[in-house]
């Protein structure tokens, strides 16, 4: 396994290099803002970001060594969480606002023109405030994002493949152990990053706990966001682009 031969420092370097570029909406959002206009911009942006997310995942050391089915499942499970932690990271220095892209920044009031969105907006802003409070470092952020990807279907029943007879098979056990090994490597990298900060041992492990506890909030907001997007789709409120639609449908299918 690639990740097994990398030191934590080398792994961090590789994960930092995998970071996607800034994605621009390109083309101004129509003002005054309307529900359809905002949803159109947000979904267009999300679709663009998803394409870059696939390239990002492939650059996480060890990811492409997983089976193609595992790669698909992981991305289908985590995509909105990954979009959301990226949004929080971009917004960390802008209290009360969400920086969806360098050319699309929304205030709470602007977000409120989309029905049901303001609750999610507030949860995103609150989670972003927590990142600010923790003074999250970029190296920690990239590790957390990789952990979201690798941990995303840890508790998903394998019968979701629709191949119940195969569950617990040799290939599947190997796949799971590879995945756990990869996740451990990223954990080692995060622990290493925290250890460089000059904190006492106690402060180091409480920081690790605080960072990991962020992930449960991100999962929660993502689930809320997924339901919201699904409702918007049902109301024909958004033109869902091909990759976004595919990822949303897969998520709805897994969770039902």
């Amino acid at each position: 396994l690639v990740s097994a031969v990398l030191t934590p420092k080398q792994l961090i370097e590789r994960i930092m290099e995998a970071e996607p570029p800034d994605i621009y909406l390109l083309g101004d959002i129509k003002r005054p803002l309307t529900e359809a206009g905002v949803m159109m911009s947000l979904t267009r942006l999300a679709d663009k970001e998803l394409v870059h997310m696939i390239s990002w995942a492939k650059k996480i050391p060890g990811f492409v060594e997983l089976s193609l089915l595992d790669q698909v499942h992981l991305l289908e499970c985590c995509w909105l969480e990954v979009l959301m932690i990226g949004l929080m990271w971009r917004s960390v220095d802008h209290p009360g606002q969400l920086i969806f892209s360098p050319d699309l920044c929304l205030s709470r009031e602007e977000g409120s023109c989309v029905q049901g969105f303001v609750e999610i907006f507030d949860m995103l802003v609150a989670a972003t405030a927590r990142l600010r409070e923790l003074k999250l470092q970029k190296e920690e952020y990239v590790c957390l994002k990789a952990m979201i990807l690798l941990n995303s279907n840890m508790c998903l029943s394998s019968s979701d493949d629709g191949e119940g007879g195969d569950s617990g098979g040799d290939g599947e056990i190997k796949g799971r152990s590879r995945l756990l090994h990869l996740l451990d490597s990223v954990t080692d990298a995060l622990v290493w990053v925290i250890s460089k900060t000059g904190l006492t041992y106690r402060q180091q492990y409480t920081r690790l706990a605080h960072l990991l506890m962020l992930l449960s909030h991100i999962r929660h907001v993502s689930n809320k966001g997924m339901d919201h997007l699904h409702c918007m789709k049902m109301k024909n409120m958004v033109p869902l682009y091909d990759l976004l639609l595919e990822m949303l449908d897969a998520h709805i299918m897994h969770s039902s």
Partner: peptide, 13 residues
Amino acid sequence: HTKLLQLLTTKSE
């Protein structure tokens, strides 16, 4: 998952 598979299996630059 046609598009996702396509993106996962194409060689990156």
